[in-house]
């Protein structure tokens, strides 16, 4: 027998490989990834009149509500920035994070029929969701820039604003990590699905979306900082409005958190994906 006879492309055994993140498989399916992003973006606003304009309306409405309640009624501090700008700047990254956790945490349960029929690296689906989310983020970011100019804040943009893509990547890592970790757990125990929605809402109040980090001290400051999204939102705000906390140490924490979470989640995910059909 020649060597070629011993080679098998696919080997399926009862135990999945222990140390694999499944990234090479994802690379083989990169065209699928692109098509799924396209599908997510295109299908979302088919048969709507306003189409992608809905991307703008969503953060704008929340921001208006926040401005009225927290800015005008509760009169919370906004570090001297106009409340509308303050809340909008917080919303941009937070919405991206929260929406993607929500979306990717439903990966297995939501795609059970498709996953039950054909094999492809499952990781492609949450990755495509995050990529589609990033596109949406970019559009919402443009709204924010327009608002900056309207309020005459354009001159406050400083060099750290250029690092904005980096914050998106870190936020994406945390969201993807959290999302797929939850999604692999929900195949067995659906309880988590209910928890995600409530948890994300509560988490928003432990982030600088509503109160600036600089206004907190003592335990409340540490509580806020424990949220890995806090340094990112603060750094974003600092880059575009000149107000906020830009701290490399805090940012390193966000990155380390996201990186470790993502590695652990991917490792767990590729173990679960092989067998989840039996439990979902």
């Amino acid at each position: 027998m020649s060597k070629n006879d011993e080679y098998w492309d696919i080997e399926i055994g009862p135990k999945p490989r222990l140390f694999s993140l499944g990234l090479r498989e994802v690379w083989n399916y990169r065209d699928l990834l692109l098509l799924l992003v396209r599908r997510d973006v295109v299908a979302m606003y088919k048969q709507t009149i306003l189409g992608p304009i809905w991307f703008f309306i969503q953060p704008l409405l929340t921001t208006v509500v926040f401005t009225l309640i927290f800015g005008n009624l509760a009169k919370l501090s906004t570090n001297g920035i106009p409340p509308f700008l303050f809340y909008l700047s917080g919303q941009i990254l937070w919405l991206f994070f929260a929406e993607n956790v929500q979306k990717t945490s439903g990966t297995f349960v939501g795609n059970a029929t498709l996953f039950g029929k054909v094999y492809f690296p499952r990781l492609v689906v949450p990755m495509a969701a995050i990529a589609a989310g990033s596109l949406k983020l970019v559009i919402q970011f443009l709204v924010f820039i327009v608002a900056l100019f309207i309020y005459g804040y354009a001159s406050y943009i400083n060099w750290t604003a250029a690092l904005f893509p980096l914050w998106i990547i870190i936020a994406g890592m945390i969201a993807l990590g959290a999302g797929i970790l939850i999604s692999s757990l929900t195949t067995r125990y659906r309880d988590l699905m209910f928890l995600v929605g409530v948890g994300l809402q509560l988490l928003m109040y432990v982030s600088p979306v509503i109160w600036p980090l600089s206004q907190t001290s003592g335990w409340s400051k540490y509580l806020l900082l424990s949220n890995p999204m806090t340094p990112l939102i603060e750094a974003f705000r600092f880059g575009f409005t000149g107000q906020g906390v830009f701290n490399w140490l805090y940012l390193a924490y966000s990155f380390a958190f996201g990186f470790l979470l993502l590695i652990a989640a991917m490792w767990n995910f590729q173990r679960v994906e092989k067998r989840f059909m039996d439990t979902v």
Binding site: Y7, W8, D9, I10, E11, I12, G13, P14, K15, P16, F115, G116, K117, V118, Y119, K274, R275, M277, D278
Partner: peptide, 21 residues
């Protein structure tokens, strides 16, 4: 079609595989 794993035993394949389930 690799939708799920066997509890025991092994399956080996050469080439790409697609299912029209």
């Amino acid at each position: 079609s690799r939708v799920t794993l066997p509890t025991e035993g092994n399956i080996r394949m050469r080439g790409r595989m697609a299912s029209l389930l």
